[in-house]
Structures are given as C-alpha cells and as structure tokens.
Amino acid sequence: MSETSISTVEDLIAVAELTDVLPFEIHAERKVPPDPKPRGKRVHHSSEMNATASRRDGKLLLRLKMPVETWDAKLVAAVGVTYEVPEDLEIPDDVLGEFIARLGVMTAYPFLREAIYSAATKIRVTPPVLGLMRPLTRDDFKVTDQSVE
C-alpha cells in the first residue's frame, strides 16, 4: 500500500476520527495542615500541563497531564484522547504538532478539568474551577515518530 501524504492541519482534521477518551490517572491528596486560606471569594490555585503523544497502528494518542495545587489539596489528573487515522498516512511533524495544539488538547481539557473537580469533591476540599484553556501552538510540542516531548 502506498503512503498518503498531507500538508495541512485541515487535511489531518478531515481524516482523523475521535475514538476514545480515557482517564490514565486521577489523584487527590488533602494538605495536612492546609496552607493559609486565601482571602476573598476566588480560590487561587497553581497548575501546569504536560502533554505527550504517540502514533501507532493508525492511531494517534494524546496524553495530557495536569497537576493542580490549591491551599488545601494537591490534585493530579491525566487523560488520553485517541484518534483513528489511515495507517498509511504520512503526517509531517509540524502538522501533527498543530493538530495536537489546536484539536487534541482542546478535546481532552474538559475531561481533565472535570476529573480535577471531582477528585477534590471526593476528598471534601475546595474544588478548583479551572479557567478556559488558552490555545497552544505547535511550538509547544517536540514531535517525533513515536512521541511528543
């Protein structure tokens, strides 16, 4: 079978099909004793995201992990998003990076946000409300055939 090539992220979006969203990790830990409670109505929290991706057997898997720390808890959630693509499809690294940044992360983020909120609720700490996800760019990822670092 000959390889099919694409040149834009729009081409990849046209052939990719979302097939699964899977939790990889959900962790909640109460701080004992908690940090001093912040003043005011808004609960302050810190968070950062890490993303990895792999491509095998006609599937793209994006794994997004977010640790969140609030005044009373440490929370972690990791979610995987799987897309099916033609096996013989040749995807340039820059197109894959842009796909991950524009579509993959935006697909995973609501599931990640819900997992963080639910984990906090289960251990009866103040659940953080994570804001809107700001768009990423393909420069936020280093793409190889097997993974995004």
Rank of each mutant, 00 (worst) to 15 (best):
S2A: 15
T4F: 14
S5P: 03
S7H: 15
S7D: 15
V9G: 02
E10I: 05
E10W: 02
D11M: 03
V15F: 09
A16V: 02
L18E: 15
L18R: 11
T19E: 12
V21W: 04
V21Y: 04
P23K: 05
H27C: 08
E29C: 03
E29T: 09
R30E: 14
R30W: 09
R30A: 11
V32P: 00
V32G: 00
P33I: 06
P33H: 03
P34F: 05
D35I: 00
R39E: 15
R39A: 14
G40R: 05
G40Y: 12
K41H: 11
K41V: 13
K41G: 10
V43Y: 12
H44Q: 14
H45E: 12
H45Y: 15
E48T: 12
M49G: 14
M49I: 13
N50H: 15
N50M: 13
A51S: 12
S54N: 10
G58E: 04
K59H: 12
L60K: 01
L60F: 08
L62Q: 02
R63S: 13
R63P: 00
L64V: 08
L64D: 05
L64R: 03
K65F: 14
P67H: 09
P67C: 01
T70A: 00
W71R: 05
D72G: 02
K74A: 11
A77Q: 00
A77L: 01
V79R: 02
T82E: 10
T82I: 12
T82L: 09
Y83I: 01
V85Y: 09
V85P: 06
P86N: 07
P86F: 05
D88C: 09
L89P: 04
E90Y: 12
E90C: 08
I91T: 04
P92V: 07
V95M: 00
L96W: 02
L96E: 02
E98P: 05
E98K: 01
F99C: 03
A101R: 00
A101Q: 04
A101N: 07
R102L: 04
L103S: 11
T107A: 08
A108P: 00
P110C: 06
F111K: 01
F111Y: 12
Y117W: 09
Y117N: 08
Y117A: 08
Y117M: 07
A119R: 03
A119T: 05
A120L: 06
K122R: 13
R124A: 11
T126S: 13
P127M: 03
P128K: 01
L130G: 01
L132T: 11
M133A: 07
M133Y: 08
P135G: 08
L136P: 02
T137S: 15
T137V: 06
K142A: 11
V143K: 02
V143W: 01
V143E: 01
T144I: 04
D145N: 15
S147R: 09
V148H: 06
